[in-house]
Computed example of a mutant assay.
Amino acid sequence: MSHLSRTLPVKRAAHVYLVQDGKLLLVEERMDDGSIFYGLPGGKAHPGETLGDAAVRQVLVETGLTVTDLVFLSLLEGELLTGTRNECYANFGRFTATFSGELNPTDPEVVGIRWVPFEEVEMLVRYGPPPEIEERNPLIWVPTRDFVKGQPRAYYPI
């Protein structure tokens, strides 16, 4: 008999598409295996924190930029990394925003920041092992691919 339900930890995160002159701001982070990962600025929400507040906090730490006037763009929702130690139920919000300030990351995991032309964004995406790394799951990048093509959707079931 199969289990009708099971409890998964919930992971909530928010990321922001910051755009300037046809370029998207990406942060460079060093992964545990030493490789460089390019991702959107943003990250995990604290317990009780809204996705919008998490976006503002994380972007400031990762880039030094202050974001205002967040506009909700997309929600990714569903089971992620099933069968790995990081299995979770994901609620990931994507926003656009107005930004100000100077690039000055204070997050020690951020090793660089780049304004990347829209047409080059997908070339920086790395998929593959280790499988428990959510950022390397192709499903996480589908909304960004759609965004740079000018075709974002409001909802992405994972």
Rank of each mutant, 00 (worst) to 15 (best):
T82D: 10
N91W: 04
E119T: 12
R126D: 13
L40S: 11
T7Y: 05
L139S: 14
V125R: 13
L139T: 08
V67M: 05
V67W: 02
V148R: 05
E132W: 15
P152L: 06
G39E: 06
P105K: 00
R153Q: 15
T144V: 15
V148N: 04
L24F: 10
H15M: 04
L70Q: 10
E135N: 12
V148K: 04
E79A: 10
G52H: 05
R94K: 15
R136F: 05
L103P: 09
N86S: 11
T82S: 13
G43C: 00
H3F: 11
L65V: 05
I113S: 12
E87F: 00
G34I: 03
G101S: 11
G83A: 09
T106M: 07
L60I: 02
D107M: 06
G93S: 10
E62M: 03
T84M: 09
M123V: 10
V16I: 09
G42F: 00
L103Y: 07
E122T: 14
R57T: 07
E49D: 06
E135H: 14
Y156P: 09
P108L: 03
A97W: 06
P131A: 14
K149I: 03
V27C: 04
T106N: 05
V16L: 08
A45V: 10
I113Q: 11
L40F: 12
S100D: 08
D69L: 01
T84F: 10
T66Y: 04
G34E: 06
P138M: 08
P108K: 07
R136E: 06
G42E: 01
H46T: 13
A97I: 08
V142Q: 14
I133E: 13
S2T: 13
T68K: 11
P105Q: 01
G78F: 02
V67C: 03
W115S: 14
N104F: 03
L40Y: 12
E28S: 14
M31K: 06
K44Q: 07
R145F: 12
L18Y: 01
Q151D: 15
E28A: 15
E119P: 02
E29H: 01
P9I: 03
I113R: 09
T106P: 00
G43V: 03
G78I: 02
A55M: 02
E77K: 15
S35W: 01
T63I: 09
G48N: 05
T68L: 02
A54Y: 01
T144K: 09
T7Q: 11
F118D: 04
R94E: 13
F72G: 13
L80G: 00
D107N: 14
I133S: 08
L25D: 08
G93F: 00
L26G: 11
E102P: 01
S2R: 12
G34K: 05
V142W: 04
E134C: 07
Q58V: 07
